[in-house]
Design a protein around this nucleic acid. Structure first.
Length: 865
RNA sequence: GGGCGGUUAGCUCAGUUGGUUAGAGCGCCUGCCUUACAAGCAGGAAGUCUGGGGUUCGAGUCCCUAACCGCCCACCA
């Protein structure tokens, strides 16, 4: 068979990626038998393109999915994308700006049309990329959070929560992004420590009896102060609390109030109260019935209430206010101060706390059962520790602001009556007001937080609110694979909504993976310029190699430091698989026995036993989401055992019935991690009758552990044989013997070892290029080119090596340490009494072996002295 | 202010419930273009498992403590 010398993924991958899709083999059949394995993808943002984080997450998912499918489970991996409200709207607005227009200029309807158009044009990119990298999704069930079915689900969910009193509308302090022009949830605000200042400002007492000093990080807000608070226990409380202050730069008089919020130990012990622009002060304002003066508008510009500062931007106003106060000599001092700035996670604009009317979800009643679900173990986290993070947030949960003043998203299904001002919330668009019957209705202009619709994802994608067969079969999902960064945003909300609407937790397990970092462990970011593009490296190294490189370094929950060396070695591994296949195909052919053939030779028994052990390890590892362990086991098996030993031994034989069977099984074991190369090679194989093996390796059974194939005797015999070969090679390497030169050698051994040596003498001779003579018993003297182990002495006909004596002395020093420590242990009564018998026996054996070795070495050392 | 991780070979990292002389990849050293593979083969060097206490017959692994690094949460003027 004509086959390239090096593996070229580009010649193989596009074909299979395409065929997997077109053949529809990953379509989940509701009526198929077997246990269900279902998983819904964390829907990537439509605006996005595939980055390393996706590549990693999707590799983890695809391994789990392919493994379950090969195990015969009724497997569904449901793909889809998220409309990502703010992110997408920002992108399209930027594009409009470049065209010299704006959403305001276009109007709402036209803008929405443009976003849809944009989505159709560019939104499919990430999906295309996912298809190209061979993700085994059921594309017939692809969903988008704004498609018709999901929109209906969103509406249903909203109405139900509203009817239950879990959604309410009200005026509260919200995080307002002046650049996105919308309210944000607490989660969409990021806190950043910044070097700022603490301004100490003198507020004169109205009666002219002096000043009190307040400290603030935002001096411009003083224009909206409506009180100054002091702690009730403050030493001057009695004296001051009836007095009032003359608020500088204004002609207002404000009271001094007593409130425990003022920490007497902080600063001067007085705190200014700006109810309109600070959440704490907002509450204080309510407690003390203070007026609220809004001095900043939705664009963070000073309002008319700010007097001569009106129209200024908040930061300009800050400077101007400070300057004005300085002029009046009202600045007592300015301290350097570290402030925690709240910024919009999208636009990085500093958010402004503003009072505004928004829609909220009451969270406590939803959180309680979601907490219970994890406490009771109905849903578990992997790694388990993440449940702490989940609990931490859930116990302290606050109501969720779900309305956004955006145009791209699910419009809130609420209608405001223009005559009686009643709100009608409805599944169908109402024509008349539910209270007064007026037809003059206007739909609420807000849309819902993106995460509201993603929160319904595990069941909305299966047809909810209808009772579909899909929903019955695939809900709850078996597994969720996601990043820790969206545990609160997404996982927790799905838990709450899943339980609320479906009565059942949405997934049994939540696997939280880490972050893909660069080779130096730095977070990848565009500004740092250390972003690795998966498509670029997929092209360079092959998708399988990229997957394998990610998987092999992905201990559960751990971050992955991703450098090119890892890719190179993974790429080399695919090449190794390729070349082993070349050898097999050219020497042995492509016909695979239907079952494991009869095992006669040591190496056959051994490789089958190793294959079996590897299958066990791989299954256990994948099942418990320890993908790196599976990858490692497969690497070791295929490269070190199958290629380096088994194939080398096979080359010496004509009759090889077992080889193809083991090889084909190995391809199956590798398939979930390296789908392309394994499919390509597997498709070249045939049955012994010359027929195709099957439709796709991805539908072949994943090898399972079989007790009957475990052969500990073969493993230990093979270990002896390997040890003899390695000893001979080591001697040769140390003396730099020409590879082609055959060297006579004598092997002294007893017991089992001599049996192995006899049975495989020829193979040993060939692998080490020595002519082997066997003698039963111990070597009479150990000099010359010798290698000794507890099992045997091997003497090659070569002159004594320089440095051999030093090596033995060094080895004996180490042996002595181990022997002494074994002695100590064995002399310890507690150890003998308490340690399990198995451990004691092992130590005894170990000690005996080392002593024998030590004695041999010693004899050689003494003689060479 | 709370919470969670990490510290193991030159580098990046593994190390299930404590139990043989702590592993891998890359890098390094030596020798090989061996009819599958130089993206390879054979051999080799390299670690007082961050420090200090403790539990235990036995600790990289469990407990306490310190240092350093990182992350998350929080309405600390």
């Amino acid at each position: 068979m004509e086959i390239d010398k090096t593996y070229d993924p580009q010649r193989v991958e596009p074909h299979w990626a395409n065929w997997w899709m077109e053949s529809g083999i990953y379509h989940a059949d509701v009526n198929a038998p077997g246990p269900v394995f279902s998983l819904a993808i964390p829907p990537p943002n439509v605006t996005g393109s595939l980055h390393m984080g996706h590549m990693f997450e999707h590799s983890l998912i695809d391994v789990a999915v392919r493994w379950h499918r090969m195990r015969g489970d009724n497997t569904l991996w449901l793909p889809g994308t998220d409309h990502a409200g703010i992110a997408t709207q920002m992108l399209v607005e930027r594009k409009l700006a470049a065209e010299g227009t704006s959403r305001q200029a276009l109007g709402r309807v036209e803008f929405e049309r443009r976003v849809w158009e944009w989505k159709e044009q560019y939104g499919g990119l990430i999906v295309k990329q996912m298809k190209r990298v061979g993700e085994s999704c059921d594309w017939s069930r692809e969903h988008f959070t704004m498609d018709e079915g999901l929109s209906r689900a969103v509406r249903e969910a909203f109405v139900r929560l509203y009817e239950k009193g879990l959604i309410y509308r009200g005026a509260y302090m919200v995080n307002w992004c002046p650049s996105c022009q919308t309210a944000l949830s607490d989660l969409e605000v990021v806190h950043e420590e910044t070097q700022g200042s603490l301004w100490h400002i003198r507020y004169p007492l109205s009666d002219g009896s002096g000043f009190i000093v307040v400290a603030t990080t935002r001096p411009e807000t003083m224009l909206g102060d409506t009180a100054v608070a002091m702690h009730p226990e403050h030493p001057r409380a009695r004296e001051l609390h009836t007095k009032s202050l003359k608020l500088p730069l204004t002609d207002r008089e404000i009271p001094i109030i007593l409130d425990a919020m003022a920490d007497p130990k902080f600063g001067s012990g007085f705190v200014k109260i700006t109810p309109a622009h600070d959440p704490n002060d907002f509450e204080a304002g309510k407690r003390h019935a203070l007026p609220s003066i809004k001095i900043l508008d939705e664009s963070a510009k000073m309002t008319a209430a700010a007097g001569r500062f009106a129209g200024m931007d908040r930061f300009a106003a800050r400077k101007a206010v400070v300057a004005a106060l300085k002029e009046l000599d009202l600045i007592e001092k300015i301290e350097d101060y570290t402030v925690s700035l709240s910024k919009c996670s999208r636009s990085k604009t500093v958010v402004e706390p503003l009072e505004s009317i928004q829609w909220w979800v009451k969270m406590k009643p939803l959180a309680e059962p979601a907490i219970a679900a994890v406490e009771s173990g109905r849903t578990t986290f992997v790694p388990a520790n993440w449940s702490k993070t989940y609990f931490e947030w859930m116990y302290n949960i606050r109501d969720w602001c779900i309305s956004r003043q955006l145009w791209w998203g699910h419009r809130i299904p609420a209608w405001h009556c223009q005559s009686c001002h009643e709100i009608t919330v409805s599944r169908e668009d109402p024509t008349v007001c539910s209270k007064c019957g007026s037809a003059d209705l206007k739909q609420d202009t807000d849309v819902l937080d993106t995460w509201f619709s993603s929160g319904l994802w595990p069941f909305s994608t299966l047809g909810w609110p209808d009772k579909t067969p899909d929903l019955a079969k695939y809900y709850p999902n078996t597994l969720l694979v996601t990043g820790f960064d969206i545990i609160f945003f997404w996982a927790a909300r799905m838990m709450m909504f899943g339980i609320e609407f479906m009565g059942e937790t949405p997934f049994k397990q939540i696997h939280i993976h880490g972050l893909v970092r660069d080779a130096d462990g730095q977070k990848m970011s565009k500004t740092k310029g250390n972003v690795v593009d998966p498509l670029e490296i997929n092209e360079k190294y092959g998708t399988d190699a990229v997957r394998f490189a990610l998987l092999v370094s992905a201990a559960a929950g751990a971050d992955v430091s991703f450098g090119e060396e890892r890719l190179t070695s993974a790429r080399n591994f695919s090449n190794k698989i390729w070349n082993a296949s070349r050898l097999i195909f050219s020497r042995v052919g492509v016909q695979v026995p239907a079952a494991c053939p009869k095992l006669d030779t040591l190496e056959d028994r051994w490789i089958v036993s190793r294959l079996n052990a590897t299958a066990e390890k791989a299954n256990r590892a994948i099942e418990s989401h320890r993908y790196h362990e599976a990858a490692d086991a497969l690497w070791t098996f295929f490269w070190d055992e199958f290629c380096d030993w088994y194939l080398e031994l096979i080359k010496l034989r004509a009759d090889v019935p077992v080889l193809l069977w083991v090889y084909e099984q190995a391809l199956r074991l590798l398939h979930p991690m390296m789908p392309f190369i394994t499919e390509e090679l597997w498709q070249r194989l045939e049955t012994e009758a010359g027929a195709k093996l099957g439709k796709s390796i991805s539908l072949a059974a994943y090898p399972a552990f079989a007790e009957a194939l475990a052969d500990t005797a073969a493993e230990s015999e093979m270990a002896t044989m390997q040890s003899i070969v390695t000893s001979a090679r080591t001697i040769r390497a140390e003396r730099k013997v020409d590879r082609k030169l055959n060297v006579p050698g004598i092997l002294y051994a007893e017991g089992a070892a001599i049996g192995v040596a006899r049975a495989r003498a020829e193979a040993i001779g060939k692998l080490a290029n020595i002519t082997l003579e066997l003698k039963e018993g111990k070597a009479p003297k150990l000099e010359g080119a010798v290698r000794s182990t507890p099992e045997f002495d091997l003497i090659l006909e070569l002159p004594e090596a320089e440095g051999e004596r030093d090596r033995l002395i060094k080895e004996n020093e180490q042996l002595k340490k181990v022997i002494e420590s074994s002695d100590r242990q064995l002399a310890n009564e507690d150890f003998i009494n308490k340690a399990p018998e198995k451990v004691i026996l092992t130590i005894r054996q170990k000690k005996a072996d080392y002593e024998a070795q030590f004695t041999k070495n010693l004899a050689a050392i003494e003689r060479s002295a």
